[in-house]
Design a protein around this nucleic acid. Structure first.
Lengths: 86, 86
DNA sequence: ATATAAACTTGTATTATACAAAAAATACCT
DNA sequence: AGGTATTTTTTGTATAATACAAGTTTATAT
């Protein structure tokens, strides 16, 4: 089934604010182990690619499904790059 | 001593990406219990004020100290508000 | 089709975390 | 400044949360 980008974004937020894996699982209608599995992957990625990179990507992913028309996501990417002087 | 807004923001990001309280503590030069204490406060706030509210505020707080340039988070908040018709 | 990898499930050992109680800072008064 | 209330930090540890293992299902690719 794989969690949707929206669910991943929600997971990030809740986990950031001190919620337990089980509490998050309940909210997203899945199991504690699935949440743990996702977090483990995120951690690995963050050690490889860097914290901000992974963090921003996950949150932007959540928006993709939601927001309407315009290229908001692309805009956000540009913004991020500009902060890094790219 | 109290963690700075920057440290709180960093804490949120690392926690969101699956890091343990001890790992975060090491990175921020403090103890596991201090991290736990902050997370507990954040959780309480998120249950009172709402997830997005607290999440965005904490991350924006981190930006305030940092250099110029609006961040992704600030933009996300604008976007969220616009979706809610504010 | 079948092979490879990714995602999920279940059960549980182990570890990370929450709790308690006290001390130290910090803030807020007059 | 002195008093006191609030917040933050410290230490030790019981226990709840998590990580692990091994198997199953779902997806992706060739």
């Amino acid at each position: 089934m794989a969690l949707t980008p929206n669910q991943i974004a929600e997971l990030l937020k809740l986990r950031a604010l001190g919620w337990s894996q089980s509490e998050i699982a309940e909210r997203l209608n899945t199991s504690q182990q699935v949440i743990g599995y996702q977090l483990k992957k995120l951690k690995e990625q963050s050690k490889k690619k860097g914290t901000d990179e992974v963090f921003n990507a996950a949150l932007i992913g959540g928006l993709a499904g939601a927001a309407a028309g315009i290229g908001i996501v692309a805009l956000l990417e540009l913004l991020k790059d500009s902060k890094n002087g790219k």
